[in-house]
């Protein structure tokens, strides 16, 4: 590379062009949020540069989204995601700690079962599970929306990788001081685990923020709609005016985008552990 400046220019231009191609739909979504649907379609045929920039800037789509109760759906999504992250982290970290630190017979078998059972994607068993949930009287409850997000194999895996990297001497020293396993988990391991906890928290958050099939299976009450379900409903109902649909989609997308941009390096670190040997 250093020896070939022309090659470097070609590679850079390629990288820029591809990145912009990926970015264009996002820009179009944002531009369409701040203009009327009529203007959105007028700018696409014939296509002009205006397609990526609103000419008549308006907040009418956002107002329409707010008036139609989209904020309730957004609030539901935030609540479900927040509870999932907090409770899910506790459950995953405890499991990961047992699987990485506490020596007991059959540990590797238990680890295999945990990872294998969570590797089968949730959607594959969502439909029969929703029938059980309705038998248990959980239909149209927040618990039904939260529960499936709590068990996450990737979160357990990420945290276990991190725990394995913490020197054993620390837990041995704590043992000699008379600390029990819970204390070692809480006071020795967790404080050292912040980056992995953030990475695992992101994994749990994204799962719930994306949820679409499960919410439509277990809720019929519109006041419990999560944001993705609400935008799909607006999309189906307003096939002539897409303005509100764009606004709702933009709001739905902005939140995880900001979270991911801010915490990208933790996501990358947790992702890195999936390919590692141990």
């Amino acid at each position: 590379m250093r020896r070939n400046p022309l090659g470097r220019v070609v590679l850079t231009v390629t990288a820029v062009a591809i990145s912009l191609a990926f970015l264009v739909p996002v820009l179009w979504l944002l531009a369409s949020t701040f203009r009327t649907a009529t203007e959105t379609f007028a700018s696409s045929s014939p296509l002009s540069w205006d397609v990526l920039w609103p000419k008549d800037f308006t907040l009418v789509n956002l107002e329409s989204a707010v008036d139609s109760g989209f904020l309730t759906a957004l609030g539901n999504s935030l609540l479900v995601a927040a509870v999932t992250v907090v409770v899910g982290l506790g459950i995953s970290a405890a499991a990961a700690f047992a699987l990485a630190v506490i020596p007991f017979r059959g540990r590797s078998v238990v680890f295999t079962i945990v990872v294998l059972s969570f590797l089968v994607p949730f959607e594959a068993i969502a439909i029969p599970l929703s029938r059980s949930f309705s038998e248990w009287g959980l239909t149209n409850t927040l618990i039904a929306l939260i529960l499936p997000g709590l068990g996450n194999g990737l979160a357990v895996f990420t945290l276990r990788q991190f725990f394995l990297g913490i020197p054993h001497s620390l837990s041995e020293a704590a043992h000699l001081d008379g600390a029990n396993w819970f204390r070692i988990f809480w006071s020795v391991y967790l404080p050292l685990t912040r980056p992995a906890l953030i990475g695992a928290g992101l994994i749990l958050f994204l799962f719930q923020w994306q949820a679409y099939l499960w919410p439509i299976l277990v809720t019929s009450n519109a006041s419990l709609d999560l944001a993705p379900v609400a935008i799909a409903k607006s999309f189906g109902a307003f096939s002539t005016d897409y303005g509100r649909v764009f606004a709702e989609t933009a709001i739905l997308a902005v939140i995880p985008a900001v979270v991911l941009l801010a915490l990208q390096r933790y996501f990358v670190t947790s992702v890195a552990s999936t390919g590692s040997k141990e």
Binding site: I18, F22, L29, Q210, Y212, P228, P256, Q264
Partner: peptide, 21 residues
């Protein structure tokens, strides 16, 4: 980051964006 950004858009959202595009 720019190439990764679409992954942050929830699937229902990107479905609608591409459905209209």
């Amino acid at each position: 980051t720019l190439i990764f950004l679409p992954a942050a858009v929830p699937l229902a959202g990107s479905t609608i964006v591409w459905g209209i595009a």
